[in-house]
Simulated scan of single mutants.
Amino acid sequence: MPIVLVLQGPTVTQQRYEDAVRRFTGGRDRMEQPADWPVGGLLVHLAGQGPQGFRIIDVWESEDSCRRFGEQLAPVLEEVGITDPPEIHPLQGFVSAATVPA
């Protein structure tokens, strides 16, 4: 069953997100394709600033792939200063029409 991971809160900022991305990509500013993630199973990644702060949303193909990513993610989040815990939920619906240009 697909899993949604949501990361938001006071310590989740655009700067810290960008710092984490650089650690995962070897210095690049953006994660652009599923191969940029350290484990397989990513279906969708979204990140952006909203009225309630910066928010990151991932959709993973399974709980196992989400857990494997979490094992890689936790030390990176700690390094960049993100201490808010992620919310993890089973996915109830998924619709995709097209790739959104950057």
Rank of each mutant, 00 (worst) to 15 (best):
I56M: 12
S96D: 01
A97S: 01
E63W: 13
G81F: 05
G48C: 07
R16F: 08
R28W: 00
A102T: 05
I56K: 02
A74K: 15
F54K: 07
V21P: 07
T83P: 03
I82H: 08
T99C: 00
S65I: 09
I57C: 07
V100Y: 03
G93W: 00
D29F: 00
E61D: 13
V21W: 09
R68H: 15
L73E: 14
Q14W: 07
E63K: 13
S96L: 01
E87T: 13
M31Y: 07
V21A: 06
S65N: 08
G70A: 11
G26R: 01
F24V: 13
Q15P: 04
L46T: 11
E87Q: 15
P85S: 07
P34T: 01
L77V: 05
L73D: 11
G93R: 00
E61T: 13
I56W: 02
E79L: 09
L42T: 02
R67A: 13
G81Q: 10
D58C: 10
L73A: 15
E79V: 03
C66Q: 15
V95Y: 00
P75Q: 12
Y17V: 09
G50S: 12
Q72F: 14
L43E: 05
S96G: 02
V44H: 03
L91W: 01
A35L: 04
A102K: 07
G81K: 08
G48M: 07
I57E: 03
R23Y: 05
D58R: 06
Q33R: 03
R23P: 04
F94A: 01
D64Y: 12
L46N: 11
I57D: 00
Q49D: 14
G9I: 01
M1W: 06
E79C: 06
P85G: 08
G50W: 05
Q72G: 11
P34Q: 03
R30K: 14
P75H: 08
P34V: 02
L77T: 03
P101T: 02
V44T: 03
A97C: 02
P2Q: 04
L5M: 14
A74W: 07
R16V: 07
E18V: 04
T83S: 14
S62E: 14
Q8P: 04
L7V: 06
P85V: 04
W60G: 04
G53V: 06
I82R: 05
T83W: 12
G48S: 07
V4W: 01
P38Y: 11
P38T: 10
Q15C: 05
E78D: 15
P90D: 09
G53L: 13
Q8N: 12
E71M: 13
T13N: 11
A102M: 10
D36R: 03
R22H: 02
H45I: 02
R16H: 12
E18Y: 01
A97D: 00
L73T: 06
I88K: 11
V12A: 13
E63G: 12
P86C: 09
E71C: 05
P34L: 04
V12W: 08
E79R: 13
E79D: 14
D84F: 12
R16Q: 14
L77F: 12
Y17C: 06
D29S: 08
D84M: 12
G40D: 13
L77W: 08
E87D: 14
T25E: 00
P38K: 14
P90F: 03
D19A: 15
A97G: 00
V4S: 04
V39W: 09
L77H: 08
V76D: 05
P90T: 09
G70T: 11
L5F: 12
P10E: 15
R22L: 01
A20Y: 03
V6A: 12
T83K: 10
P86F: 09
